[in-house]
């Protein structure tokens, strides 16, 4: 039996709105519970379904608050449509998301291109079920600090002599594909002065380039556009170049869930995602949160290029 008393990963609590004045009371209760050793404030055990819930998760490459809203909304919509219990499990680490998929703690994960390949190769029986329309045509942007004096261009060669940072080490858009395109233009992706940095997140990349500690960096175009639209971009950051298109994010389903919830689960999920329509207000909300016009079916072969590049860079074994 698996009771969920404490959400180890921080808690589904994040998205649940609570009246403000209750907060202090809750804290006091929590403290009292702590001191007396009776856990009055702990969440109730999850209803135990024989088959168990479908546990969905995502690699953490986005604003966490967005992730929380994204998956809260999606879990509700998915549960309603498929008639099964859906639980969102937050994860903070790329490698952890892959490992948890392998161990069967996560059933359906929104992986980036590279992490999806890693997870699929480690988990026999895993199948990609859907991708967004924009994932067929995904881009990263190279940014430079204003003080470098560089102006937007398609030539990546001038970046070679700059202090350069990627995002997370196994980010497809923040590491893998930019490295591939750098190499295509004859720039050694590991050869930057002092070695490339790994800022850990797209936002950290933007901040480090703004500070000038790193003179250049690369990040997910979607994140860059979102920050630009919100007016949060530092004027010291200059958009330098845009990569060619590549395939990126996709939904990957683990074999364990198929066993528990029925052999037709992959099809039902693909149908659910591709059936989301911008005309339906509820569906539109999900699509908007994912920044997509629609979801499309996908297959493993779409990620062969990523797998090959991953192997070349030693990120897929």
């Amino acid at each position: 039996m698996r009771t969920v008393r404490a959400a180890r990963s921080g808690g589904p609590a994040y998205g649940i709105p609570r009246p403000a004045r209750l907060t202090a009371v809750a804290l006091l209760l929590a403290l009292a519970a702590l001191l007396t050793g009776c856990g009055g404030a702990s969440p109730a055990p999850a209803a135990a379904d024989a088959a168990g819930p479908l546990r969905i998760g995502a690699i953490p490459d986005q604003d966490p608050e967005v992730l929380q809203r994204l998956y809260g909304t999606l879990a509700d919509s998915l549960a309603e449509d498929l008639g099964i219990e859906v639980e969102y499990v937050p994860v903070t680490d790329y490698a952890a998301a892959v490992s948890l998929f392998r161990t069967g703690d996560l059933d359906l994960v929104w992986f980036g291109g590279l992490t999806g390949v890693q997870a699929r190769l480690q988990t026999p029986g895993a199948v990609p079920v859907a991708q967004r329309d924009i994932d067929e045509d995904f881009h990263s942007v190279f940014v430079v600090n204003r003080d470098t004096g560089l102006t937007p261009s398609d030539d990546l060669a001038p970046l070679a002599g700059l202090r350069f940072t990627y995002g997370s080490e196994t980010s497809t858009s923040g590491r893998l594909m930019p490295a591939f395109f750098l190499a295509e233009q004859g720039v050694d992706p590991e050869g930057f002065p002092g070695g490339p940095g790994f800022s850990g997140s797209h936002d950290a990349t933007l901040s480090l380039v703004a500070s000038g500690s790193y003179q250049a960096g690369v990040l997910n175009e979607q994140v860059y556009e979102a920050r630009a639209a919100a007016g949060e971009l530092d004027p010291a950051v200059v958009r330098y170049a845009r990569t060619p298109a590549y395939a990126d994010y996709h939904w990957l389903l683990g074999p364990d869930a198929v066993e528990r919830l029925g052999a037709d689960l992959p099809e039902r999920l693909t149908d659910y995602f591709t059936g989301l329509s911008a005309d339906d207000p509820e569906d539109a909300e999900v699509l908007e949160l994912f920044g997509a016009g629609a979801f499309l079916p996908t297959e493993a072969a779409n990620y062969d290029q990523i797998e090959q590049i991953g192997r070349d860079l030693g990120l897929v074994n």
Binding site: R8, G10, G11, A13, Y14, A26, S42
Partner: peptide, 10 residues
């Protein structure tokens, strides 16, 4: 703060 309170317990 509420989120943080629960996180503190964990």
């Amino acid at each position: 703060l509420a989120v943080l309170g629960r996180a503190t317990l964990v």
